[in-house]
């Protein structure tokens, strides 16, 4: 047991070290070649030069945003998969992504405004409304609310919303053109204002999620056992859902729907950490941030023309994930 714990700490430490390296890379790599010591200097002492604007105005907010959004998606995924006990449960399954997408598309189609900064609040509202619908359908908060019913309600609501989205998109060329880039999920051109808008939601989601991981882990032993051990089942489930909605909704509003991170990160975390949900959550936080930051750095350097980070996250992350799923035993939920 002691050995196992130290192995887990070691692995988690390794992920965190890699994450720090990722942060450094995200600050250092860009189309404008800057020496590491110059970047370091500019971070602390802005001198009003163009280089200073690049580092503090573009690379820094982008790095922080990638860090926060990746961590949020990783944690949301860990909570969602534990809650539904289904490895296919992406945090977006609550309808959050579909709701945000529909509202963004409708907004573009009606107003013609194609400014990413203007989307944030609409996306946030759409995500919240869709999640609320899913809860109502699945009867969340009732004593007998079942995870499978929740998952089905989520995919059903998502499908209905996605249909409406594609109806709008197929009819309106302008909206389609905007949508195909938004839906890829990108950190490009996002910064402090987006971060500021979603930060409160991320904060609330983080606190909620971390406060219930212990109870949620017990709940995975089975409802009756958990109840016997003093877990308030329906309250824990409701709080978990609120946490996932806040985390995932905020992430989607800030950078667009980033696919796959919320799905793959918790599973890799489970392969590394074993069964304990507290360790899995901690690892998912760090690993999610690492995953998205790495994707964003690769997105800048892979092709002459920048690729959306959401695409790289799945394009490069997918094969990595397949390797992990084949090599290691992923504990069942």
């Amino acid at each position: 047991m002691v050995e196992r714990r130290s192995r887990r700490s070691l692995l988690l430490g390794l992920v965190i070290v890699l994450l720090l390296a990722g942060v450094a890379a995200s600050l250092l790599v860009g189309s404008r070649g800057l020496a590491p010591d110059r970047v370091w200097e500019l971070l602390w002492h802005p001198d009003g030069s163009l280089e200073s604007a690049v580092v503090r105005g573009q690379r820094l907010p982008r790095t922080v945003l990638g860090l926060v959004v990746g961590a949020a998606l990783g944690l949301a995924g860990a909570v969602m998969q534990a809650l539904t006990r289904n490895p296919l449960a992406d945090p977006g399954i609550l309808g959050v992504n579909a709701g945000a997408a529909l509202v963004v598309v409708a907004f573009v189609a009606v107003s013609g405004v194609t400014d990413i900064g203007a989307y944030v609040w609409f996306a946030l509202a759409g995500a919240g409304a869709a999640a609320a619908t899913v809860y109502a359908v699945a009867g969340v908060g009732r004593p007998d609310s079942s995870p499978v019913r929740l998952a089905l309600a989520g995919v059903a609501v998502s499908a209905a919303l996605a249909s409406l989205t594609s109806a709008v998109v197929l009819a309106d060329q302008e909206a389609f053109n905007e949508f195909r880039f938004w839906v890829a999920g990108s950190l490009q051109g996002r910064g402090w204002s987006e971060l500021g808008a979603v930060a409160p939601f991320l904060g609330v989601g983080l606190v909620l999620a971390l406060s219930i991981t212990g109870a949620l882990g017990v709940l995975m032993l089975g409802e009756d056992t958990a109840r016997g051990l003093g877990v308030k089942v329906s309250r824990v489930r409701t709080l978990a859902l609120l946490a996932v909605t806040a985390l995932c909704g905020a992430a989607t509003a800030a950078v667009g729907p980033i696919a796959f991170v919320g799905l793959a990160v918790p599973m890799v975390a489970r392969a590394l950490m074993g069964h304990d949900l507290r360790w899995i959550s901690a690892c998912s936080l760090a690993l999610g941030a690492l995953w998205l930051l790495t994707a964003d750095v690769l997105a800048r350097v892979l092709a002459p023309e920048e690729v959306a980070a959401g695409i790289v996250a799945a394009l490069v992350g997918g094969p990595v994930f397949v390797l992990v799923a084949r090599r290691r035993r992923v504990p069942a939920l």
Binding site: P87, L88, R180, F181, V183, A184, A259, F260, L263, A264, M267, V307, A308, G310, I311, V312, A313, A314, L315, G317, G318, P319, F321, V322, A325, R326, V330
Partner: peptide, 21 residues
């Protein structure tokens, strides 16, 4: 099967999005 299919599917979905953009 689910896990591997998921990984492969996500990679291809990203490829599809890339093609579309």
């Amino acid at each position: 099967l689910v896990l591997v299919g998921l990984g492969v599917g996500a990679t291809l979905a990203a490829l599809n999005t890339l093609l579309l953009t």
